[in-house]
């Protein structure tokens, strides 16, 4: 039987209260959102917090809305909310593509965007999604807020820019004209973690890709955004040759490991192919030729 080690449990009633508790309770306190990454780690003693601060009552963090040319998502938005959101589906179809294949419906009822990003598991899908979309993260402490771009949010596997007296409260995604996005994932069975995932976002003007990004999951650290891909996409015409080349660039910029989900060679092959497919769909969507 797997049971977490003894802990103290506190329930936060507001963001202010949550960050005050976090500072007061010390380095070994953790927030618990959906608990679907943290509790499994605690059962295995991979995480050993002394205190859990439950943030599920923070109704002020459960939103998805448009404001100031951005879509803003509260950290407690659950996978299911992201899947169901028409606003996200309209502006950033990559979310619905990804959410359809993240875990299973029951897990999606609990797991949150904030928890996913803060878990910073290299196999986790939403970091690739948010990085491809050039999102930024609002981090709150008792002293105020700071905004950190996604590419600086993850400082290593399972490590983020959120300090011990801080909390991730909001994710902001810029709304820019001519955008299209898509997500591709290969999994062994329904509801499983990715063998490999690739997300792509492009912004187009007059038939040319002005700006584009590809983010990968499950193929090593530091692949949520691949800089040489962004360089190859900027100013390029959307041709099959380009997709081919960008797929190869992605494949040579990841470091998959052979494990139960597949060999490194198979995963590298998937990176190239899934990158091409995601880009193709993203461009088609940007051109309003929805496929």
């Amino acid at each position: 039987m797997q049971v977490p080690a003894p802990i103290e449990y506190e329930r936060a009633t507001s963001v202010e209260h949550a960050v005050a508790l976090r500072s007061e309770l010390g380095d070994e306190a953790r927030f618990i959102a959906g608990g679907h990454s943290l509790l499994p780690m605690m059962k295995l003693r991979l995480a050993n917090p002394t205190h859990l601060i439950d943030i599920n009552d923070l109704k002020e963090l459960f939103y998805i809305r448009e404001a100031d040319s951005e879509v803003r998502i509260g950290a407690m938005a659950r996978h299911r909310d992201l899947l169901d959101s028409e606003l996200l589906a309209r502006h950033f179809p990559i979310f619905r593509d990804a959410e359809r294949v993240i875990a299973d419906p029951t897990v999606r009822n609990r797991g949150t965007l904030g928890g996913s990003l803060c878990q910073a598991d290299p196999s986790e899908d939403l970091s690739a999604v948010c990085t491809a979309l050039d999102a930024s993260c609002v981090i709150t402490s008792s002293d105020g807020q700071r905004v950190v771009p996604m590419h600086a949010f993850h400082v290593g596997p399972y490590e983020t820019a959120v300090a011990n007296n801080e909390m991730l409260t909001e994710i902001r995604i810029p709304l820019r004209p001519g955008g299209g996005s898509a997500y591709q994932k290969v999994e062994r069975r329904a509801g499983d973690w990715a063998v490999v995932s690739a997300g792509a976002a492009v912004w187009m003007d007059a038939g040319t890709i002005v700006d584009g990004r590809v983010g990968l999951a499950a193929v090593g650290p530091d692949t949520t955004s691949i800089q040489p891909v962004a360089e190859a996409l900027a100013g390029a015409a959307p041709t099959e040759d380009l997709y081919q080349r960008v797929g190869e660039i992605a494949a040579s910029n990841c470091s998959p490991e052979t494990d139960g989900r597949g060999t490194a060679a198979y995963k590298t092959h998937l990176v190239a192919e899934l990158t091409r497919r995601a880009l193709r769909t993203a461009v088609a969507r940007a051109q309003r030729q929805e496929v």
Binding site: Y9, I32, G35, L39, P40, L52, N56, T106, N109
Partner: peptide
């Protein structure tokens, strides 16, 4: 629906 092996009773 929630998987009750992955929630604390306290929650």
């Amino acid at each position: 629906p929630v998987k009750s092996c992955t929630q604390l009773a306290a929650m």
